[in-house]
Amino acid sequence: MKVKVIVTLKSGVLDPQGKAIQQTLNGMGFANVKDVRQGKYFDIDIDESDEQKSKQSAEEICKKLLANQVIEDFKII
């Protein structure tokens, strides 16, 4: 089954790309944009029909490779 994963920088960790996007948006006239945090999205197709087991695999995948937990959090959706 398909599992979706979002990896984001932990709050408090500097995100220069997010900052640049925010400033660009402000410059384009979107004056109400106060903050942008950039993240990563993964679509993972796991050969497993049990939802619980798929999510367990996804969690292990996130911890071991997709997220660097020093600076990143992950969410399985």
């Binding site: 960790v13 500097l14 220069p16 790309q17 640049a20 660097n68 020093v70 600076i71």
Partner: peptide, 16 residues
């Protein structure tokens, strides 16, 4: 740092 042999992480340079 990615192997865990050293602590921390190297992030993107502050001024991109």
């Amino acid at each position: 740092t990615e192997t865990g042999l050293l602590k921390g992480v190297l992030q993107q340079n502050k001024n991109i």
